[in-house]
Nucleic acid binder design. Structure first.
Lengths: 138, 138
DNA sequence: TAACTCCCTGTATTATACTACAGGGTTCCG
DNA sequence: CGGAACCCTGTAGTATAATACAGGGAGTTA
């Protein structure tokens, strides 16, 4: 029966974020407006902590706050249209595949550069500039 | 003997960027200050076009303008210290590997979500929230 | 009750990468 | 020479994601 309650300082310590960031997320609508003490202090629950950790992890995976907001809206049941969900997820998936592809190309270019560099020890012609001037598909 | 010369409008048309972006890059030091006509109009050369295309392609690969600037400095011979070059390249390579790794994880999560969605057609429990609340390594 | 820590609000600043004016000067065509 | 199209400068605004700070209130403990 005794659910854990946190004040701002306790929550930010547990989630390892700044207190300004917490308020920022609240203002952005990513976190619900918490209840308050008589003195006006915010009171958070376990649910808020989980939500905050979700935001943190999703960010780590490269999602923008806007996208995270959309996913949270789905989780909250505000957005129950399946087509909508699929659309968000698929759109992101396309971008991810493209990014993985691009990162692979950049990786090759950088490995070439590093090798080139260790061979000559001076750079007269630049392998990256050459590679990238020719263009990257898409 | 007749090298191609471009005015701002011609160059931005060829590179497919905005004219303000061109000035922005000049101010940032990514493009050298071009020579001018008697009337003060900027005159660009083929070399500038190649440089601009390099910036565009490097951006597509996810490099920041700051990193692009460092690579251009290398290409310009301003930075000929091999250790420095290797350092920039290796640092980026580490980030890339991590990003590829993270994107792969996100991809799995999203594919799960899409599948879940097409099975149930309604979302009662949210697979992404569940996945991400548990955390992502590193 | 003083002192101290924590919390409140609102506003301003940071960094990245542009994008959009306002108010002029230049070039070129007829 | 008139007018359109183009270019110049400087400043301001946009979006994203925070981060910092000023000025004040709340809660706790000696």
């Amino acid at each position: 029966m005794c659910e854990q309650k946190y004040k701002t300082g306790e929550l930010v310590a547990l989630a390892e974020i700044g207190k300004e960031t917490l308020r920022f997320y609240e203002k952005k609508g990513l976190l619900p407006k918490p209840s308050r003490t008589a003195g006006g202090y915010r009171i958070y629950t376990e649910k808020d902590l989980r939500r905050l950790l979700f935001i943190k992890n999703a960010k780590k995976l490269g999602l923008s706050l806007k996208e995270i907001g959309e996913l949270l809206a789905i989780a909250d049941g505000e957005l129950v249209d399946c087509a909508e969900v699929r659309h968000i997820a698929q759109k992101r998936l396309d971008i991810i595949n493209e990014q993985i592809d691009n990162l692979g190309k950049l990786k090759t270019i950088l490995i070439d550069l590093i090798n080139q560099c260790s061979k000559t020890n001076t750079i007269n012609s630049c392998p990256i500039i050459d590679s990238l001037s020719k263009g990257v598909k898409k």
